[in-house]
Amino acid sequence: MELRCPFCGIRAVSEFNFRSVAPERKEQPASALVYERVNNPDCSLEYWQHVEGCRAWLLITRNPSSGRVDDVRFLVHEA
């Protein structure tokens, strides 16, 4: 599997670290925010980091059932 880093181009997935599934932005108890996952088998929104490249934090949209990567974008913090 390969990922297209917005800065470094197409690189092997072993250069990247998966950090976590992105939590949904809605009001919920802290325990749910920490522990519960949506587990949609067709779409997963995740935080990754290009640790062996530019070290940018990335927001990746993938289909965990097919392995297809739909979107890789630079993670910009919203104020």
Binding site: V21, A32, Y35, E36, R37, V38, N39, N40, P41
Partner: peptide, 15 residues
């Protein structure tokens, strides 16, 4: 996890 999604329940699971 996928069954949880099918039934509309969030589980403390990742696959």
């Amino acid at each position: 996890g996928a069954i949880g999604h099918l039934l509309g329940m969030r589980l403390p699971i990742e696959t």
